[in-house]
Amino acid sequence: MKKPKVAFFDFASCEGCQLQIANLEEAIIDVTKIVDIVSFREVMKEHSDEYDIAVVEGSIMRPMDEERLKKIRANAKILVALGACACMGSVQRMLNQWPMQESKDIVYGEGDPKDIEDNPYFANFHTKALDEVVKVDAFIPGCPINRDEFARVLVALVQGKKPPIPDYPLCVECKKKENVCLFELGKFCMGPVTRAGCDAICPTYGSECEGCRGFVSHPEENAYAEVLEKYGLTVEEILQRKTMFTYRYVEKAKKEAKKDE
């Protein structure tokens, strides 16, 4: 069997998910045994536009990003969204709460607006996830990604299987690890609506889950909101928590509410 060629790309992101892959340590050698890495800015100088699998980190913020992503899509047989930014828009999606010009005024307000007017690098629009621009074949969620999960997905793709991303709440992994439930410690956790697959790493170390892997396909949002209220959060506070990584869902809910009106 010919080894598939893999290329890594990044858009608006911290590139931390690619760093996770670079940090696979010895396992990176195994990775190179099953795929040919033809482009990976963090670890090699070489680049090639001939690839089968494009692994793309980051969110889409500008027309030039859209153009570049579409080219990558056209070149690749399989396109993988890597990490929370690529899958959902993540932290930078918080921007979408305000009109774009308002944000630009705050960020670039001091100077002459003409300086950035025609500059494509500053032509930001509201944050988009990859699948809002092109077709995405596999999603590896998380901020950062779980590198073991990356390896599992890569194996599945090479074998022609569906990527093994869980579709049940984080509580399942937390319970299997016998963690003390954070709600019992008086904390607020997004585990009950968040997609598992990180092995509950944050709750295991006592940190609240902030939903960096996005929601399960059918989150019980009403029941969850009721729980948060019961534990003393206001609706605004609940919304605020959802804004950090998962504003995409808030936007979706807002759109649906508008439709209902």
Binding site: V31, R152, P164, P169, C171, K175, K176, E220
Partner: peptide, 25 residues
């Protein structure tokens, strides 16, 4: 919440799933 906690922590819930995992080689 459909989180499965009640079944996972139950001493008389025995349901299981089976999955294959292939190594990186």
């Amino acid at each position: 919440l459909g989180c499965g906690t009640c079944t996972l922590v139950c001493p008389t819930c025995f349901c299981y799933d089976i999955n294959d995992e292939v190594d990186l080689n």
